[in-house]
C-alpha cells in the first residue's frame, strides 16, 4: 500500500514541476480562445500560427541575435579567463596567492541586489550603459569557473608539465594542448552553467539599457507582455520560443548539469 502511495506522490511531484512548461505549450498551440475556455482544455491543438506571428511580425530575430551574441561572447570569455586564472592558481607560483584566492571567493559573498546602484554608477562613468560591452564585460569572469578549472588542473600529474618544460614546450601551448583537453568535463560544465545564467539574465539588461535594440529575449518578453496584454496565444508562444533553447540543452545534458550542480559524481553513474 505504502509503496503505491509513494509512487503516486512521486508522479504528482513530477507533474507539479513540469505542468507549467506543458501548459505554456497547450496555450501557445491551442485554438483561438482556448485559453479562456471553462473548464480548461488540457490537450494542445498544435496550431503554430501564433508562433509564426511572433517570429515574422515582431523583432524576434533581433532579440534572438542579441541573446546569442551576448551569451556566446560571455561563454567564451568566461572560459578563457577561468582557464587562465585556474591554471595560475593551480600551477604557477604567485606571491600572495592566498589573498587572491580569498578575493575571488569574496565575490561570491557580495549580495548582487545591494550592488546594483553603485554598479550602475560605475557603468555610467565607464560609458558602458546601453552597450553590448556593458551587458557582457561584468560577467566575463566567474569564481566558480576559476575554482572548477583550478581543481581539474591540480589533479593533473606534475610530471605532465615537467615533461613539457624539459621538451621546451611553452606554457601557452601546454595549457592549450594538454591541460585544457584533459579538463574537458570542466569546459562542458562551465559552458553549460554560463549558458543558462546568461541566457536567463533579466535584471541587469533591464537596468543597464534603455533601448530595445540591445534587449536579449528574456527582457524583450516584458515588451511582449505590454503589447499582447490579453493575447495569451502570442504571449505564450513568445515565452515558449524563449524557453526552447534552454529546454533542448537541458534535455541533452541534464545528467551533466545535475551532477555539476550537486558537485558530486552521482549524476554520472546512472
Amino acid at each position: 500500500m505504502s509503496k503505491y502511495l509513494l509512487t503516486v506522490l512521486r508522479i504528482l511531484i513530477a507533474v507539479f514541476f513540469i505542468i507549467p512548461v506543458y501548459w505554456t505549450f497547450v496555450i501557445a498551440t491551442g485554438s483561438r480562445g482556448a485559453a479562456y475556455s471553462l473548464p480548461p482544455v488540457f490537450l494542445p491543438a498544435f496550431h503554430f500560427h501564433a508562433m509564426w506571428v511572433v517570429l515574422t511580425q515582431t523583432r524576434w530575430f533581433r532579440y534572438l541575435f542579441n541573446s546569442v551574441l551576448i551569451t556566446s561572447i560571455t561563454i567564451l570569455s568566461v572560459l578563457v579567463s577561468s582557464i587562465a586564472a585556474g591554471y595560475a592558481l593551480a600551477e604557477v607560483r604567485v606571491p600572495g596567492k592566498n589573498l587572491i584566492f580569498y578575493l575571488m571567493l569574496g565575490v561570491m559573498m557580495l549580495p548582487g541586489q545591494a550592488l546594483l546602484i553603485p554598479q550602475y554608477v560605475v557603468m555610467f562613468h565607464l560609458h558602458l550603459l546601453n552597450s553590448y560591452a556593458g551587458l557582457i564585460l561584468p560577467f566575463t569572469a566567474s569564481t566558480s569557473g576559476i575554482f572548477l578549472f583550478r581543481q581539474y588542473f591540480m589533479k593533473l600529474p606534475k610530471s605532465y608539465r615537467e615533461v613539457s618544460r624539459v621538451e621546451n614546450v611553452n606554457t601557452w601551448t601546454y595549457i592549450r594542448r594538454v591541460a585544457v583537453p584533459l579538463a574537458k568535463p570542466a569546459v562542458a560544465t562551465v559552458t553549460l552553467l554560463t549558458f543558462i545564467s546568461t541566457w536567463n539574465q533579466f535584471q541587469w539588461p533591464l537596468i543597464m539599457t534603455d533601448t530595445t535594440n540591445l534587449d536579449p529575449i528574456e527582457l524583450a518578453l516584458t515588451h511582449y507582455m505590454q503589447t499582447y496584454q490579453a493575447n495569451w496565444r502570442e504571449l505564450t508562444s513568445a515565452s515558449l520560443l524563449a524557453l526552447l533553447p534552454i529546454i533542448i540543452v537541458f534535455l541533452f545534458t541534464q545528467k551533466h548539469i545535475v551532477a555539476a550542480v550537486a558537485g558530486g559524481e552521482q549524476g554520472g553513474k546512472d
Binding site: S159, E162, V163, R165, V166, E167, N168, V169
Partner: peptide, 10 residues
Amino acid sequence: PGERNIGMVF
C-alpha cells in the same frame, strides 16, 4: 629546462 637538450623518462 628546455634549453638543455635533455630527454627525460618519468
